[in-house]
């Protein structure tokens, strides 16, 4: 086995770790928070606030 073979295995392993983190965290977040909170983002909040400030 050469060094580059070990690097290949390391790349496979790291890829799996990053993938695992993404999936575990995704499932954890989805089960902890309600859909109402997670999808509450609305565009134009800053602009609306600026308008409010002008009116205020």
């Amino acid at each position: 086995m050469e060094t580059w073979n070990y690097i290949e295995y390391a790349a496979w392993g790291l890829s799996a770790l990053f993938g695992l983190f993404l999936v575990v965290d995704w499932l954890k977040i989805d089960s902890t928070y309600s859909e109402d909170v997670l999808t509450s983002s609305r565009e134009g909040e800053l602009e609306a606030m600026t308008e409010e400030s002008h009116k205020g």
Binding site: D36, S40, E45
Partner: peptide, 9 residues
């Protein structure tokens, strides 16, 4: 978070 109801933005 602003007036349109955004809780997490």
């Amino acid at each position: 978070m602003g007036p349109h109801g955004t809780k997490v933005g």
